[in-house]
Write a protein that binds this DNA or RNA. Structure first.
Lengths: 233, 233
DNA sequence: TGTGATGCAAACGTCATACTTAATTCGCCG
DNA sequence: CGGCGAATTAAGTATGACGTTTGCATCACA
């Protein structure tokens, strides 16, 4: 197992979390702590702490005399990084990927516009650098290297926006980009038009042209949305 | 106290959470469990469960031999409803309100566009109804009643978008709207232009005009952003 | 004197158990 | 038949003991 050195409650969590988010326990399902205790062969303390975390994610609700009940999907904290990770790893990965891509398409253009206004010289340099990296790796089946630059590029944009809520979505965007690469046929190089757009965004941010940065980024995310119709059910 | 019937760990959480998010414990601060145990006069079990929840919010990290250390702001789960609530209640409320308003301005127009495509007849009816309610309460110092309709309106739009990530931001938007009303001079009626925009959005969604719904909503959020410069530092 | 191995101790992690609280169920009595 | 209360059940809390990790200091050796 790679489940070592993380504490027992973390191990229980890594088992229950994915199962619940995958829908293995339909909403309303009742889990009893003593049953879990036996199933995982750990003490109540451990189970209780794992439950407390699941409860803080709104995945379950714990009531006396009743047990721990699984809550309906609409009540989950779908922005919790672990919930996102579990759902991406599980059964409704396509659905989750779709939700996140739509989220991206809303956030990133605005973030790029703000970045054009607030980015530091260092961030502008980083941006140009990563865009260049994308150009360099855009041909000849170097998808992995390309992905690294792509993720870095978008992360810098989100950070440079100066909005902490946007900045925290860096991991989400990275996950979406990674997911797309994994689903893509492995010998298809990235769309040259998309690469060009990234270079232009870097330039727009550097010159402080917010409207242009926003519009260009909107083109990028529109492209991602278009791909989605082909890739995800 | 109104802290009753919620369990001891919840009470500890309601004390530590706001304190940490308010910056009372700067990043790197070390809390020891036995000290907390004495301070709150509860058992280790309770402290440990509270710590576990704070840890799941990425507010703190617990390491052996060193204690529970407060993590830097950039690592917090800023989308956790409780974190948002605590920060809105605390010292950097203006900053948080600003972040959330920017987030709104990115999300809501896209959500409205999607709502125009996916809204059910029932949702369209709800939308028109709430817009009418806003019109009815927009004059004569009925700000509280107006706020109720305003919140309901935006919540329906977010839900009708069909995107679960958007739908979960209903509480955030509600918090922003509430915050705005509280900060506004209490005898100033809402901007008539904004009220009209809401009515037009309802219509655009009903007629399935996505582009128009998006553009109109963008006007609404732009207005909210403009207000912000006056209200928040 | 410098460097690395070794051992101690501090603080969290886990376990077992006893006791408390609250809610549901069921049966008694009016 | 209905309401009220006692039994039951499962989570919540408290506590003492032991395990585990790891920062730090000390000591040995070159």
């Amino acid at each position: 197992m790679e489940n070592e050195g993380k504490g027992l409650h973390a191990r229980v969590l890594e088992s229950l979390g994915p199962a619940i988010t995958a829908g293995d326990y339909p909403p309303g399902t009742i889990l009893r702590t003593d049953e879990l205790e036996q199933r995982f062969d750990v003490s109540r303390t451990v189970i209780r702490e794992a439950i407390r975390v699941l409860e803080s994610m709104q995945l379950v609700a714990s009531r006396r005399r009743v047990g721990v009940t699984v809550r309906p999907t609409e009540e989950w904290n779908v922005y919790d990084p672990r919930v996102i990770g579990w759902r991406l790893a599980g059964r409704d990965r396509p659905r989750q990927l779709r939700s996140l891509t739509v989220l991206r398409s809303a956030i990133e253009p605005v973030a790029a516009g703000l970045a054009a206004q607030h980015a530091t010289p260092e961030q502008c340099a980083r941006l140009t650098e990563e865009a260049m990296g994308m150009v360099a790796t855009s041909r000849g089946q170097q998808l992995d290297a390309y992905l690294v630059h792509d993720m870095a590029f978008h992360r810098v944009v989100l950070t440079a926006s100066g909005n902490e809520m946007f900045a925290r979505l860096g991991d989400v965007v990275a996950a979406v980009l990674t997911g797309r690469t994994q689903h893509r046929v492995m010998f298809t190089d990235p769309d040259p038009a998309a690469v060009t757009l990234h270079v232009q965004v870097a330039e727009a941010v550097r010159t402080g042209d917010a409207a242009r940065a926003e519009a260009l980024t909107r083109e990028i995310t529109a492209g991602a949305m278009a791909e989605l119709d082909v890739l995800a059910p």
